[in-house]
Design a protein around this nucleic acid. Structure first.
Lengths: 299, 299
DNA sequence: TGTTTATTGTCATCCAGGCGACAAACATGC
DNA sequence: GCATGTTTGTCGCCTGGATGACAATAAACA
């Protein structure tokens, strides 16, 4: 069925030419998720457990914000779970199911009617849109403790985005009704939810402004600073110069491209430039920001 | 002070070259709002009244959504005020002040610390960002009944966007504390607020996807359909073919450009094409969509 | 250990759309 | 009615970045 996807070099996830795009619709779904390999996107192969453990990991996740001109990003990735009280966490998680996802499993697709909100237990979920031409635009990543899927719950309608596991990931799944009930019972939590959505609005607005007025280099610089900020908690073990910022997220060039609305090639080239300038460097498969100032002055 | 702004033709609001941009910083503000004329941007020349009347106008404002592929837009412009009960409206408006704005008055600027949320009573408020190079990106317009300014309230930080009156406008201003107290006291309303923020997230995500993957023509088409949908309530009086959709919002080409992240010239040209094709036409200073299908098939 | 698939690096080509520069058409105030 | 400011229409030039094509690694797998 997807036998053509594995062929050919320089396959850009989801950004094929229009002429071949029709193949994607062979499925009965609205739009096929562009899968990276034939066996890549298993359906939600979820193991359902009654959630109880592994909350500890999440709670330790604190975000010391790194100044990138404003505090947008640290807010946008506010750790919902750890901001709740013990009782609230109990209340919420008792009515949740724990889903276990393998890398590239999808949690939901655009067009789905799933009516759950999710909290990442561990791993990382990628939220993205797919344009009619098959181009993928990543809206954001969800890290442990983060709440997502909220936006679509309030419109009775279908999901508008895709959510897939970027790596081995576990998420708590909470049914719409339960979640609403929970918010009703815990006004504090409702306020926090509003706070998270607000941060999301600000973050998206920010991204939008950047996309509309900055060039690729600037957008990359912003993105790196942003990810450095949100991944600063999980410091990279390669204990190098602590002056350096570590972008401790697995990002392929294609991901960056999808994140900033550029082509993969341009990202490769630009990143290379930045490396030659000594602004960033690669430390086993992830980026370290050597001269934050250099990036910041591109803003 | 702004004596140079009025000079020269083809002045693009806020998108001057970098070399002249420094002039904008003569003020002690972070970034000057690019004003359209020297006398344009008076400070909030607000007349404070105890809000009581003119709610009627707003409540009549109903949104029959026009299908543009999804229901995003009608949601995003959900009428917060009219969705509340009589008592809720009372509660909310008694602790509000009514601000009267002349066209181009600004309500707040990026960097401000104003801690209010607002509800449009009548008129229209434009929310936008200004990039370091002075380029303006419009996030959205707020129409009567709509709640805005919420996103920044939850971060203790400064406003990230500019809000100025697009025309003669009146807004209810509610202090942060009062608003939070209100939401606490009215869980229903809190849910509605969440719904609005959700819709905003969806709308921004949509715009982002479009900006990243569509060309200017498509983006314009989308925009027109969107505005036709949200302005369908206030039908244009020029009672022409009721088959036509009326974009009953005052939009200059520059506004459209700022809305979709394009240059004014390109917007002019593209719009002209669309007119030649018979897809849209001008009816005294605003756009009518003659062939909605034509626009929709550009998506 | 060899084979297959994913990811990165490079290059030549091409074009959508940004930008400056005017002119004409409107608006608005005096 | 004149003058000044604003918005729209048009052109030509020029570049950032998309696209396609491939080579070179690196990782996954069998």
């Amino acid at each position: 069925m997807f036998d053509d996807q594995a062929s050919g070099y320089d396959y850009q996830r989801g950004s094929r030419r229009k002429c071949t795009f029709e193949r994607w619709h062979q499925d009965n779904q609205h739009v096929m998720i562009p899968l990276r390999s034939a066996k890549g996107g298993r359906a939600v192969s979820a193991v359902t457990k009654t959630a109880a453990n592994s909350v500890a990991v999440i709670l330790g996740h604190d975000l010391s914000s790194i100044d990138d001109g404003d505090v947008t990003w640290s807010d946008a990735h506010a750790n919902f779970l750890s901001s709740l009280s013990q009782e609230e966490i109990q209340d919420l998680l008792t009515c949740s199911r724990l889903l276990v996802l393998k890398p590239r499993d999808h949690l939901f697709r655009a067009g789905d009617h799933s009516k759950d909100v999710y909290i990442v237990a561990e791993g990382c979920i990628r939220l993205f849109k797919v344009s009619p031409t098959g181009k993928e635009t990543i809206l954001w990543f969800n890290f442990p403790g983060e709440l997502f899927g909220m936006a679509e719950i309030w419109s009775g309608s279908q999901r508008q985005v895709y959510a897939i596991a970027n790596e081995a990931t576990r998420v708590y799944s909470i049914r719409r009704q339960d979640f609403i009930k929970f918010l009703g019972a815990h006004p504090e939590a409702a306020m926090k939810a509003i706070g998270i959505l607000s941060a999301r609005v600000r973050a998206l607005g920010h991204t939008l402004g950047g996309l509309a007025s900055d060039n690729v280099e600037t957008r990359i610089a912003r993105l790196l600073m942003r990810f450095a900020a949100i991944s600063s908690a999980t410091r990279c073990s390669s204990g190098v110069n602590d002056a350096e910022l570590c972008v401790n997220v697995r990002l392929r060039h294609q991901d960056i491209a999808n994140l900033i609305g550029a082509s993969r090639q341009t990202v490769t080239t630009t990143l290379l430039q930045l490396r030659k300038l000594g602004a960033v460097r690669m430390v086993d498969h992830h980026i370290h920001i050597v001269q934050a100032d250099h990036l910041r002055c591109l803003f």
